[in-house]
């Protein structure tokens, strides 16, 4: 978000850029596929250039459209005895099917994946901690 580009006609997405995006999205593209995607994306983004002409209106603060709950103060009782705004369900939704039935690899109550390459030893160490 440091640099900002204007959407403009004639924008072209390079194959290198497509591959960078594909890596971010963890999608593997063969060379031919990447080429086609670059071409499709360039053509789609060209149509998006019109967005540059929107007279700036205050954009919404969140992704949620103006429905219910978005404007009401959170966690406060409202009239008519309805639950507090934003109040969720009081109990977790139970699982009707054990996890071992949906997990691709399940051992001793754990999901299992191939060992992470970057792990160097410290317990609980993560590439990206929250």
């Amino acid at each position: 978000m440091n640099k900002s580009y204007e959407p403009e006609p004639g924008v072209t997405v390079t194959i290198e850029e497509i591959q960078r995006i594909a890596t971010l999205a963890r999608v593997r593209l063969e060379q031919g596929e990447a080429k086609r995607m670059a071409r499709d994306m360039s053509s789609i983004l060209e149509h998006m250039a019109v967005l540059g002409g929107v007279a700036p209106e205050p954009a919404p603060t969140s992704g949620v459209p103006q429905g219910e709950g978005s404007a009401r103060p959170f966690g406060e009782a409202s009239d008519e005895g309805v639950p507090r705004a934003g109040e969720g369900a009081a109990t977790p939704d139970p699982l009707e099917r054990p996890l071992e039935r949906i997990a691709p690899d399940w051992r001793d109550g754990l999901f299992v994946v191939p060992r992470l390459p970057s792990v160097a030893g410290a317990p609980g160490e993560r590439e990206s901690s929250p």
Binding site: R107, D108, G109, L110, F111, V112, V119, P123, E125
Partner: peptide
């Protein structure tokens, strides 16, 4: 990372 050989387990 130390639960299974060459695998990572997730809880």
């Amino acid at each position: 990372h130390d639960r299974f050989a060459s695998a990572t387990a997730v809880d």
